[in-house]
């Protein structure tokens, strides 16, 4: 099935409304009324959450309305298959990069990620790609850890090698 822009508009609106609802309910337990020393802590988050819900529904209504009025824009495909494939080919390695970084640390994650993208998407020879990845990781290490003393996230492998 082709995903039309309208569908994405509606999905976004529902998600935003859910975020608004989450905020508003979270604020409820803080007190949302106006005490004698001004608004209570939950006052702003609560009403901002409500406004977000209303605005999200207004946005959805507007999209449906424009669809009914025969707007071409709403019927457009959100992403052509080819575009979807390109975005995913970029986004998925990035997601994997984050997962790897969380568990194995920044340096390993970065080196693997650069290697993969240069190899698969860039068409570089694997050994060049792996060199690019490792060189960049080492550069990061020296700039952040050594020059500016900003520690980056490390995993078990750095631990094993004794790199702090």
């Amino acid at each position: 099935m082709r995903i039309k822009r309208l569908h994405v508009e509606l999905a976004t609106a529902v998600t935003l409304a859910a975020v608004g609802a989450l905020g508003a309910t979270g604020a409820l337990e803080l007190g949302v009324s106006w005490s004698d020393s001004g608004p209570m802590p939950g006052y702003f988050p609560f009403y901002v959450g409500i406004i977000l819900i209303i605005a999200a529904f207004a946005s959805a209504t507007q999209a449906i309305f424009r669809m009914r009025m025969g707007s071409e824009e709403m019927r457009e495909t959100f992403l052509e298959p080819e575009q979807t494939q390109r975005v995913l080919s970029f986004l998925l390695p990035m997601v994997v990069f984050v997962v790897v970084t969380v568990f194995l640390g920044t340096y390993i994650g970065t080196a693997l990620y650069l290697f993969y993208v240069a190899w698969r998407n860039g068409g570089y020879k694997p050994w060049i790609a792996i060199l690019i990845g490792i060189a960049f990781s080492i550069a990061l290490y020296f700039v952040f850890e050594k020059a500016f003393q900003v520690p980056l996230h490390k995993g078990p492998i750095e631990e094993m090698l004794g790199i702090y």
Partner: peptide, 10 residues
């Protein structure tokens, strides 16, 4: 792009 793109991401 295949090189600078992921570098920017990192």
């Amino acid at each position: 792009f295949a090189i600078i793109g992921p570098m920017i991401v990192a």
